[in-house]
């Protein structure tokens, strides 16, 4: 081999490596771009309003994000499986009022169950979880066995669960909870309990999606339902589990809600489903199915939380906040589509 040709080959090799590096950087940027967006937001907001970075405010953001953040975890499973669940806001209200009715102190002015003494906090929690799981599983069952689109099934459930919440309460809010229930909305030392609950749910969902065969099935159903069926995956059972988990997450969120607010109204959490969908979407979970991550849902929820908190701190009108949020959701999806189109 002449030295010239060797030089040429070296050059080719080098440029190939450089190309490789470039595509790798690009892939990393695409994958973790949303974290950069979050950092960017934090930097901009804290420059304008240094108060943002105080530990009280940071915990504030996390606490505020925890309710729709928990809902977004369930939503991640749903959207990754190529579905949607718009009933979780109403399911939160229904499981919330059930929990509230069992968590009242016996000295409350208007007791839902008049002869009820103070219940251990585990009881309203279990009741709420069961209600959420049931409503979600009904969603999944409807989708699996009737074949109606997820949007329609959960649209029906959205109205039904809201109606049930109204009937259960007679339209009135339920308040005055036991200290144990209120503890869920408070702090341990400096650490807010809602954030703790959020962290636990993140861990559970992370294991569920990444390390169980159920998680693999979620990706397979969303990515290619035919391949899943041919491989012997029980699609129907998995759909029930997926929507059941979304309902369960709504119920967990309802308990945090009850503890934080100290009262649950049957009209509570209207529109929360859309915030959860937005957080999931911003986090890169694809509505075309098969792509979705837990960390994405968390970062997506934080982007929304930081944005809301930051804009309020900077004194931006609430109306304008809505417009900014809408733009961010659309941009997130456009970027996501581009990313996936290029792969083909």
């Amino acid at each position: 081999m002449t030295s010239d040709s060797k030089k040429l080959m070296d050059q080719a090799e080098r440029s190939r490596l450089a190309d490789n590096k470039k595509t790798k950087v690009k892939a990393l940027l695409q994958k973790y771009g949303i974290i950069l967006v979050l950092l960017f937001l934090i930097i901009v907001i804290s420059t304008i309003q240094p108060k943002f970075l105080s530990s009280t405010n940071i915990f504030n953001v996390l606490t505020q994000s925890s309710i729709f953040g928990i809902m977004a975890l369930g939503m991640t499973l749903v959207i990754t499986s190529k579905g949607i669940d718009i009933s979780v806001g109403s399911v939160l209200a229904l499981s919330g009022v059930v929990a509230a009715s069992l968590a009242q102190v016996s000295s409350a002015t208007t007791q839902y169950y008049p002869s009820l003494s103070d219940m251990p906090v585990i009881l309203p929690i279990i009741a709420a979880l069961l209600v959420g799981l049931l409503m979600g599983s009904i969603n999944g069952g409807l989708i699996a066995f009737t074949g109606i689109p997820a949007f329609i099934a959960t649209l029906g459930m959205m109205t039904i669960a809201r109606g049930l919440a109204l009937i259960y309460t007679g339209g009135k809010p339920i308040s005055q909870f036991t200290p144990d229930m209120m503890f869920i909305g408070s702090k341990v030392g400096f650490f807010p309990v809602p954030v703790l609950v959020y962290l636990i749910m993140i861990a559970i969902t992370w294991v569920l999606l990444g390390y169980t065969s159920f998680g693999k099935n979620v990706y397979a159903i969303g990515g290619n339902i035919k391949a899943a069926e041919i491989s012997g995956v029980n699609v129907k059972k998995n759909l029930i589990l997926i929507y059941g988990y979304a309902g369960l997450c709504a119920a967990v969120a309802s308990i945090v809600f009850a503890g934080r607010v100290g009262s649950v109204h049957p009209g509570a959490a209207a529109g929360y489903e859309l915030t959860a969908i937005a957080a999931t979407t911003i986090g890169g979970t694809s509505h075309y199915g098969g792509i979705g991550t837990v960390w994405g849902a968390v970062v997506g929820a934080l982007v929304l939380g930081v944005l809301r908190n930051g804009m309020t701190l900077m004194g931006i009108e609430a109306y304008w906040q809505q417009i900014v949020e809408g733009v961010i959701i659309i941009v997130a999806v456009v970027v996501d589509m581009r990313k996936n189109a290029r792969k083909k």
Binding site: Y219, A220, A227
Partner: peptide, 27 residues
């Protein structure tokens, strides 16, 4: 009909992943 955005191994063992003692997928 592969599940495109998943890895080779997840495609091959889809629906019958090997498990650890805890019941989690043994990657």
């Amino acid at each position: 009909s592969p599940v495109e955005h998943r890895s080779i191994m997840e495609n091959i063992w889809l629906g019958r992943e090997p498990k650890t003692k805890l019941g989690l997928v043994d990657h």
